[in-house]
């Protein structure tokens, strides 16, 4: 479904990532592992269209994404759960979900919201609440829900457990598992790299912008981060 070929990217003149190659199919999961500054978020931002590649290709379902902005990539099935949640704090939970489903027809909105509520029932009591007043865990659920609203085929999850209580982290992993069962592919970054590698079928280890290792998680080398 998604192929990354010889991808090099960064910020302005600074190249952060060099020669990244991997692919991910429907329902597969990939853990992105590496120390701070290794380029994990840069890779996710590049796939979601916020950073243009310096060279290389990002191909999704046969289409080269190079010329497509983040909104077009969302339409093509790329969903983003960003680091730090980045929910819209002055909008209600319902409005956050409406924005998440903006790329889909209006008539699908109620059905998509019901699907999100099914995965995160806690949000259903808080539909009219301002998102900024939710707890950290609820905000993470909302960030997931917002990404789910566009019916993505690929979900990019950045720092899933950052600042969350262990019970909430478990809840988020459980929800992610449900999405994977539905055939959604997931690329996951988590500060708890053992948890990420344990959850994902494949892993890619980055070391200061280089691809250090890529393969089945069961064969992943032990990394110290």
């Amino acid at each position: 479904m998604l192929q990354i070929r010889d991808l090099c990217c960064g910020y302005r003149d600074i190249t952060v990532l060099r020669d990244i190659n991997f692919e991910i199919e429907e329902g597969e999961t990939l853990a992105l592992v590496g120390s701070n500054g290794a380029g994990k978020t840069t890779l996710l931002m590049s796939i979601s269209g916020h950073i243009s590649p310096n060279s290389g290709k990002i191909i999704m379902n046969g289409a080269d994404l190079a010329s497509k902005g983040p909104d077009k990539r969302c339409v093509l099935g790329v969903g983003l759960v960003p680091e730090g949640r980045r929910i819209f704090p002055d909008l209600t939970v319902f409005e956050n979900l409406v924005v998440g489903g903006y790329s889909r027809p209006n008539k699908m909105q109620a059905e998509n919201i019901a699907r999100v509520m099914d995965v995160f029932p806690r949000l259903s009591d808080r539909k009219k609440q301002l998102a900024g007043s939710l707890s950290g865990g609820e905000q993470q659920m909302l960030a997931f829900g917002r990404a789910m609203m566009s019916n993505p085929s690929l979900m990019l999850v950045d720092e899933l457990s950052l600042g969350l209580m262990p019970s909430v982290v478990d809840e988020c992993y459980e929800a992610l598992g449900k999405l994977v069962k539905k055939g959604i592919a997931v690329i996951l970054v988590d500060q708890n790299s053992d948890a990420a590698i344990g959850f994902c079928s494949n892993s890619l280890i980055l070391e200061t912008g280089h691809q250090y290792w890529y393969g089945k998680s069961s064969a992943a080398p032990k990394v110290s981060i």
């Binding site: 969302c74 819209f88 704090p89």
Partner: peptide
């Protein structure tokens, strides 16, 4: 309104 708050994430939501 979402775009005013965070244009990057609004774009990633398809806006």
């Amino acid at each position: 309104r979402a775009t005013v708050v965070d244009p990057q994430i609004a774009a990633s939501s398809g806006v």
